[in-house]
Structure formats: C-alpha cells, structure tokens
Amino acid sequence: MFLLHEYDIFWAFLITSSVIPIFAFLISGVLAPISEGPEKLSSYESGIEPMGDAWLQFRIRYYMFALVFVVFDVETVFLYPWAMSFDVLGVSVFIEALIFVLIPIVGSVYAWRKGALEWS
C-alpha cells in the first residue's frame, strides 16, 4: 500500500498487535467453561425483563458535536504541514495561516451563538 520503506515496521507491528486479541480469544475459548441459559444471555437491565430494543433513536446533540469536530479536525490536519516548515515560510504565510484559523473560529462562534455547543 505504502511504497515507502519506513512503514514496513509499522505494518509488521500492526500485524503483531492484531495477533494479541486473536490469541486471547483462542486461549479463553480453550480454557473457559460454557453453560448457557436464556436468562443469562438476555441483556442486562437492572434485573428486570429487558423492555424493547436498544437500537433506537438517540439525541441529535451527538451529531452536532461530531460535525463541529470534523471542521476543527480537518483544520488542524491542514495546519501540520505549515508548522513543519514554519521557519522556511516566514511572515506572509503566517498571516495566511492566521486567516485560515480565523475562518473556523468565526464558524465556531456562530455555532456557539446558535446553541450547537449546548447540551440541554
């Protein structure tokens, strides 16, 4: 996938670390006892019979926070290359980056005023 040689070790370490959960599941599958029952396998709701499904509607607030998160996360990703070559680029690029940072800030002030960052 990556042609760069320096990522070889990364992929190898990824494979190594994915072996750990598989290994844990295998060992546990051999050692652990199995005694199933309908009550035991039903979902836990403080001791009473589970009422209905849990896959239902949830608060829209989580979605709003996720949207604001995407805006700022993408902004930070774009700032990284600038920070790496900061001493080469100098003042003019700093002003451009400042304008670039100001745009999401204005957006977040708008989101704040509109109540996207309020929980209740």
Binding site: S43, P50, Y62, F65, A66
Partner: peptide, 22 residues
C-alpha cells in the same frame, strides 16, 4: 451489545474523545 446502558456509554465515549481530541 443491544443494551441501553451500553449504547449510551458508547455514544458518550465517542462524544468525549472527539471533544478532547482537538
């Protein structure tokens, strides 16, 4: 898990880590 507690917990975990990621 299809459990209401688990579902809420998972949502909260996601919201919390994306909020403090930035």
């Amino acid at each position: 898990s299809n459990n209401k507690y688990s579902f809420l917990g998972g949502l909260r975990a996601a919201a919390q880590s994306i909020s403090y990621e930035i």
